[in-house]
Design a protein around this nucleic acid. Structure first.
Length: 155
DNA sequence: GCCAACGTTGGC
DNA sequence: GCCAACGTTGGC
């Protein structure tokens, strides 16, 4: 058997563009528009269906973790890269050699409260987690299993 | 709105 | 391959 431990991730979204409530309503969505190679590589090479995701609201009044989602598919080419009408269109990409990949993400639940970024910064055990490293702007990043459990316990 | 901390692009 | 210029992210 090719078994594998569950992976844990954090994905950022601006709530004005796509919030946890939007995901709840739609139940499942392709995570399109990622145009950063490191973030793409995490989706393409790291994520597997069933992996758990912290849904994070960024660039808003109260940045923080607001819900839990789950990886619903393996990675496949992001259709928006081929669409000239899309703001995510990438003329340098082609269907033969797609540059950008995505996974579908499905809603699991909203947290009872927002676990705020400024609150997370107060926990010394989390200093190594990518979200809290200085200057980190990645929109998709891994979370260590013990950090996942610890953060969940704060809810 | 500001701006630090990036990542990307392109001239050389 | 170097690196300056540029664009973006995202907290504040």
């Amino acid at each position: 058997m090719n078994s594998r431990k569950t992976g844990y991730w954090l994905m950022k979204s601006e709530p004005e563009a796509f919030s946890i409530d939007d995901l709840k309503r739609k139940r499942q969505e392709p995570w399109d528009g990622v145009r950063n190679y490191q973030a793409r590589n995490f989706m393409r090479d790291g994520m597997r269906p069933g992996d758990r995701i912290f849904f994070y609201h960024s660039n808003c009044a109260t940045p923080g973790i607001v819900g839990i989602a789950e990886v619903a598919t393996d990675a496949y080419p992001d259709p928006s890269q081929f669409d000239p009408e899309s703001k995510y269109f990438d003329p340098a990409s082609s269907r033969e050699k797609p540059r950008w990949m995505l996974v579908d993400v499905k809603f699991v639940k909203k947290l009872k409260r927002t676990i705020r970024l400024d609150e997370l910064k107060g926990h010394d055990v989390l200093v190594e987690t990518p979200l809290l490293r200085k200057g980190n702007r990645l929109s998709v990043m891994p979370i260590a299993a013990d950090h996942w459990k610890y953060i969940l316990s704060l809810e």
